[in-house]
Design a protein around this nucleic acid. Structure first.
Lengths: 203, 203
DNA sequence: GTCTATAGAAGGATAGAC
DNA sequence: GTCTATCCTTCTATAGAC
């Protein structure tokens, strides 16, 4: 059996990821994690010492998974427009397969802002922006993009794909009466968001 | 003293709001609420029976406060463009004064999606859209706005103002190295977001 | 209505046998 | 490494005096 072949530590880690992402740090119970992993509570402490240690391990893994999805766009040899389209296709697809990640990460960061600072200490955002600006130097005259606007632009781009997943509960309640299906909505959003941003940025 | 003159129930409710919004349902402690209200734990149960009852009372009040901020825009006698500008000015100002609300509400809804459905049972979103479309009928030929796009458009508009507050912890960590100040960023966003959306929607 | 004291349950953590 | 049993703290909730 694939499951029972897995090493215990890995089984615990995966169970903990499921439970923490679903319930959050405060709502998660060590007993629930042990149950899902198919072992007893004592093993959790044997491998991870404490709930806090276990949570930190899970959070760092999960947050890294989330953030690294933002970068591959940069390497692609595409026009600025096509990069935006590429980004939303890839990013929304990723979030479709990890629907609870945005809410989990946003929430846990607000509970403990220090955590994120450790995680992002290597990220040099200003240099990233400069790379983008330089790489697409010639195209930029067609766009409303300047260095000082980069924070607003980047946050706007991320908002359009991340927010709907973070707000899924509300959106589904709102959509219920209007016969809009959330999954279909997100599928269409891959192109809608790209078009929206491109029009917003084009001169 | 204004504070000690307040009726006990109200003092409890306000203290509970502060604590629940800050820590979430699972992280909040009845003792903390009692301390902040300046009374003992027993009184919380005397007035609100249980932590669950108290939380529900707080959540419904807070969520209502959030949602009702979306509607006054509709009553204003403004062009579509000016409504969008008006919305972001008002809405971001409201969120600046209630910075923790987005993360709190998004998170608690994901933990208990049923709650939101009760709250939104009176909201008839489809009729709202129709009202907007009818009211601005003549202007619409200049915009990429059709009934079937309304869900995407409305979610996009909300994303741009709500998401940055929900993600404040991340943004501040990212901004730290680039000398961007979050408060200044949100102040500028009142006009940036409006311009962004208007360009995105204009033909 | 308000307080103190405490019941009763739950949860994180550990001791110790195997 | 893995298990059972249990410790100890924390938390919600209530009993009962005033």
């Amino acid at each position: 059996m694939a499951v029972s072949d897995k090493q215990t530590e890995e089984r615990i880690f995966e169970a903990a990821t499921d439970i923490f992402v679903e319930k959050g740090m405060d709502g998660a119970r060590m007993q629930d994690i042990a149950n899902r992993a198919g072992i007893n509570k004592a093993m959790l402490h044997y491998y991870f010492r404490s709930k806090d240690h276990l949570f930190n391990a899970v959070f760092e893994k999960v947050a890294a998974k989330m953030f690294e999805k933002f970068s591959p766009v940069l390497d692609e040899e595409l026009s600025l427009q096509d990069k935006i389209r590429f980004f939303y296709r890839e990013h929304i697809t990723f979030l479709q397969n990890n629907q609870q990640l945005p809410a989990f990460i946003l929430n846990e960061i607000n509970r403990n802002p220090e955590r994120i600072k450790r995680l992002l200490k290597n990220l040099e955002l200003d240099k990233l922006w400069m790379m983008i600006l330089e790489k697409h130097g010639e195209e930029l005259k067609d766009f409303n993009i300047t260095p000082d606007l980069m924070p607003q632009i980047m946050v706007s781009i991320a908002s359009l794909s991340v927010f709907p997943f973070a707000a899924r509960g509300i959106l589904e309640a709102l959509f219920e009466k209007t016969n809009v299906d959330f999954d279909k909505f997100m599928e269409e959003r891959k192109t809608f968001a790209a078009d929206f941003v491109i029009r917003a940025l084009k001169k």
